[in-house]
Simulated scan of single mutants.
Amino acid sequence: MIDRPFRSALYIPGSKERALEKARNLPVDAILFDLEDAVSPDEKVAARHTLKEALYQGGYGNRYCVVRINGLDTEWGRDDATEVVEMDCDAVLLPKVNSPADLDALAEITGDLPIWAMIETPLGIINAAAIAAHPKLEGFVMGTNDLAKDLNTRKGQNREPLLYALEAALLAARAYGKVIVDGVYNAFKDEEGLKAECEQGRDMGFDGKTLIHPAQVDIANAAFAPSEAEVDLANRQIAAFEKATTNGQGVAVVDGKIVENLHIVTARATLSKVAAIAALDH
């Protein structure tokens, strides 16, 4: 898996020069430059060139830059894929991935460019493990709006109707060491609701949250970053375990709880994430 944070992944329309400019100064970990849903049909060709120029000009720092193209079954998809190879981006994002064959078709055009997959269809969930195993696949982006539509379900409290799908995709991503970011929260003015959904996604195991508005960035960044209490616990667990092993013991006790090697792996990962966040040049 990529050794960097993906706490926040903000969608930016590829057709909007002002939004493309503003994104250069937002404290996001990743930008999903969108040529698909956020761009109307009559703007799609122009958006491709607008985005290419913005990426050429640069200024996005250490933000991970991903371009979401239109599906290859649309009139714009293959041209998007051809153009994205020439863009100064880190990866290409393919919508509505149903099987590894969709990634094969894209890779024939994009070559060595890393691929991310939108997991937003019933077939995408059913085939999540096979998709995650693809050698060009770098990460999953959950498309919860489209998934809910295709399932004919309502998200409900705590997204209960979607939990199986979310967990299936998460299991697949973790099995093959891929990044996975949670779906969007539509009510961008509802800060408490966003915070709760970010915390749910974090506790499930997602790496971060896709966002539709800059106002959501700080909440996502805070939710998916280790807290001061977690950092303190990680340091104390490592110190106690190292002392225990020096004394020939295989376990330690911290706050009345057993600490084994598996806890130290998690503790070191927590500290590594803190260091990686600090290293980002926002």
Score class of each variant (00 low, 15 high):
3 D>M: 04
5 P>W: 07
5 P>F: 10
6 F>M: 11
8 S>Q: 04
9 A>N: 11
13 P>Q: 06
13 P>Y: 01
14 G>T: 09
19 A>Q: 10
20 L>C: 09
23 A>Q: 05
24 R>W: 01
29 D>G: 05
31 I>E: 01
31 I>H: 09
32 L>V: 13
32 L>T: 04
33 F>N: 00
35 L>T: 08
38 A>G: 09
39 V>M: 10
40 S>T: 14
41 P>S: 12
44 K>W: 13
44 K>E: 12
44 K>V: 13
47 A>V: 02
49 H>G: 02
50 T>C: 09
53 E>C: 00
56 Y>L: 10
56 Y>N: 04
57 Q>C: 08
58 G>E: 13
58 G>D: 12
60 Y>W: 07
64 Y>Q: 11
66 V>H: 03
66 V>G: 00
66 V>D: 00
66 V>P: 00
69 I>A: 03
70 N>R: 02
70 N>W: 06
72 L>F: 03
74 T>A: 12
76 W>Y: 14
78 R>T: 07
79 D>S: 06
82 T>W: 00
85 V>Q: 07
88 D>F: 01
90 D>V: 08
92 V>Y: 00
95 P>T: 12
97 V>P: 04
98 N>F: 00
99 S>T: 15
100 P>L: 12
101 A>D: 11
107 A>T: 11
109 I>N: 02
111 G>T: 09
113 L>M: 15
114 P>G: 12
118 M>C: 08
119 I>Y: 06
120 E>M: 04
121 T>S: 15
122 P>T: 12
124 G>P: 08
129 A>K: 12
136 K>N: 15
137 L>N: 06
138 E>K: 10
138 E>T: 12
138 E>C: 03
141 V>N: 12
143 G>M: 12
145 N>E: 14
145 N>T: 15
150 D>P: 00
152 N>Q: 14
153 T>I: 13
155 K>W: 05
155 K>G: 05
158 N>M: 07
158 N>E: 14
163 L>N: 02
165 A>N: 05
167 E>Y: 09
169 A>V: 08
170 L>T: 12
170 L>P: 11
170 L>N: 11
173 A>F: 10
174 R>Y: 08
181 V>P: 07
181 V>I: 15
186 N>A: 11
188 F>P: 04
192 E>L: 15
195 K>D: 15
202 R>I: 06
203 D>P: 02
204 M>P: 10
207 D>I: 04
209 K>Q: 13
210 T>A: 12
210 T>L: 10
217 V>C: 03
223 A>N: 06
225 A>Y: 05
226 P>H: 06
226 P>F: 06
227 S>K: 11
229 A>R: 09
234 A>Q: 02
235 N>W: 02
236 R>K: 14
240 A>W: 03
240 A>I: 07
241 F>A: 03
249 Q>V: 06
249 Q>P: 00
250 G>M: 07
250 G>W: 05
251 V>R: 01
255 D>A: 14
258 I>N: 10
261 N>C: 01
262 L>P: 01
263 H>R: 04
264 I>R: 00
265 V>H: 04
267 A>N: 09
268 R>N: 06
270 T>P: 06
271 L>S: 10
272 S>L: 03
274 V>S: 07
274 V>D: 03
280 L>F: 01
280 L>H: 09
